[in-house]
């Protein structure tokens, strides 16, 4: 069961998580969406593979529901060398800190030994590509990597 962990401010990351889960489930995978605020980071090392999704808030800060997840990881510093993860970020290029949030989370996971697979997916709310198209397209591109 692939955990899809999202942190959100306005709910858009949750929608992206739902779309990515739908895509994986429709294509032979088994994915489950969990809010970062409801997730115990002690379980992360044993997940094998996880998808992390977060938006960016204000001046390049983490959303309120991502921050506790990030802080808990930073504090407990679990050994994540057995974890592979994929990352998808939401942002708004109207602001100069577009898409910072996911880079902050991905950098911490890597620092703790986790290995990122695929490119970090990004959606820009100021552009016309819909979030669903961006998230699903990214998940599609991720598939060969997961199968490998």
């Amino acid at each position: 069961m692939t955990k899809i962990l999202f942190g959100t401010e306005s709910g858009n990351s949750e929608m992206a998580a739902d779309d990515i889960a739908d895509f994986l489930n429709d294509n032979g995978g088994e994915a489950e969406v969990v809010a970062m605020e409801d997730y115990d980071v002690a379980d992360l090392a044993a997940e094998g593979f996880a998808v992390v999704i977060t938006s960016t808030y204000g001046e390049g800060e983490l959303p309120e529901t991502t921050q506790p997840f990030y802080d808990a990881l930073k504090e407990s510093r679990p050994d994540l060398s057995g974890l592979r993860f994929a990352a998808f970020g939401l942002g708004d290029s109207t602001y100069e800190t577009y898409g910072n949030g996911i880079d902050i989370v991905a950098a911490l996971l890597a620092e703790l030994g986790a290995v990122q697979v695929g490119e970090t997916g990004r959606h820009d709310a100021a552009k016309t590509v819909t979030l669903t198209d961006a998230a699903t397209g990214w998940a599609e591109g991720l598939q060969p990597t997961l199968a490998a």
């Binding site: 858009n12 709310a125 819909t130």
Partner: peptide, 10 residues
């Protein structure tokens, strides 16, 4: 600020 309006998709 169309980015802020994108919540309508949800």
């Amino acid at each position: 600020h169309q980015g802020s309006k994108s919540v309508t998709a949800q």
